[in-house]
Design a binder for these strands. Sequence first.
DNA 1: TATTGTATTTCGCAT
DNA 2: ATGCGAAGTACAATA
Lengths: 265, 265
Amino acid sequence: MELSNIENLPLSPINDLIDRLNKAVSDKMIIIAGRCKAYFDGRIKSTLESGDRLLVIKKDLSIIMHGPEGVKPLNWQKPDAGPIHFSEKDSALEMFTRRKKTGETLTVMFEHIFTSMIWHALDETEIEIYGDESDLVKYLVKHPELIEEGFEVVRTEFQTKVGPVDIKGRSKGREVIVEVKKRNASPADAHQLKRYVEYFKDTEGKNIRAIMVAPDFPKNVQEYLEKNGMSIKKIPWSEIFPVIQRPKSSKLEDFFGNKKKEKNT
Amino acid sequence: MELSNIENLPLSPINDLIDRLNKAVSDKMIIIAGRCKAYFDGRIKSTLESGDRLLVIKKDLSIIMHGPEGVKPLNWQKPDAGPIHFSEKDSALEMFTRRKKTGETLTVMFEHIFTSMIWHALDETEIEIYGDESDLVKYLVKHPELIEEGFEVVRTEFQTKVGPVDIKGRSKGREVIVEVKKRNASPADAHQLKRYVEYFKDTEGKNIRAIMVAPDFPKNVQEYLEKNGMSIKKIPWSEIFPVIQRPKSSKLEDFFGNKKKEKNT
DNA sequence: TATTGTATTTCGCAT
DNA sequence: ATGCGAAGTACAATA
């Protein structure tokens, strides 16, 4: 992959900066570090008074604006929002966008710019993830005895009118549906499973068993499940599922020592 | 507020760069634009092959790494993760962090750095938000007739053992609890309300009415609610609630023309 | 600390 | 397009 290039834009004259930024929109990543106010108007209305923030506009027209703390941006706009426009307002830089379909607007008014860059960032990869719920289901399908001694898998990850079912099987002479949760079960999860049970009862007249699999169950949730004829099965994924075992050491080599590095220069 | 300053770090010699970065951790915002691989190991395991990404480390030790598209970071780490360490690996920069409590690790291996900056970003403000669910509840409390003709509010936003109740009132001679949703009601929302009803039945022996307020109800959800003795009330917030009305025009001045700007130089 | 619910959730998938 | 559920959800409020 060719080397991309990043360019520091001169901050003045401001009209030249505005030109360069407008030309970079939807082509390059724009990075501006500045002191600004910001207003969002749409599903909600938000007001952000003057402070230092990092504004990033990506080539898919998504926008994120970060303050000095936290993972979540202070303001953002989803991709393909609509035109993004830089202009001069009171001798300062202003960014404005309006999402066509919803009418949502985001306005960022800069008072001071520390740095402004455009970057033709290249990334042809996709993040690979192991250990999400779908992987846990696949693991259980290979080790059905973890669910219950004698459990036989019949179908996995199929759609019903009320939602997707993780595992349908047969055990102790009855049909069973299994709902798999990566994290501790919640009341909403319990209701979700109950709804599936009711669906099979209503549409197929079957009195089907239900098992919820999760690392742990708050007392309320366990009570609710059992009161409504459902079963629980605690599976501490981190101890059982090989991919998501917790690293015990802080040494990188212990986890990725088997990975081959490719030089790319 | 004093003007913060941003500093471009020399990219070589790499040991000097590493020193500067390690000294900046937990003090300044660190911004690195580079080509890198990344690995996360914890609740899941993720692998990210070589590509151009923007890495931001904030002074609260939160980390976000963005690729060229999308609002969501490719990798991240929540605040107060634990020590963040830069080092040299195969003549290149590497960042490593391990969250003490969970053992989650994030490793970023750079192959090329385009820009590296540290920034003493200042922000003493908090974002102000209008139009979230709590504001809708307050609006309904002032306009209870929107819920139902003759509705009288008794209590609002109070805690129960099963969760917070938005509005409790009296209407048509019976007690009513009202659950307010900003967005279309979901199956989980319906179950949530049912749980509250059951709570009042179990703990106070009251056969209380329940109304769910939302802009719209999918057919399944409406059926479930009515089948279980709950009522629905459609309220299209965007047409009614003044703060979140959709702007019809694309001209900035139409929305912010009334705002006074303060110079801050 | 654990539980619970909201979110401008975002994102992906299936209908 | 809408509905639905997962997410390394993040984050705040609460017990």
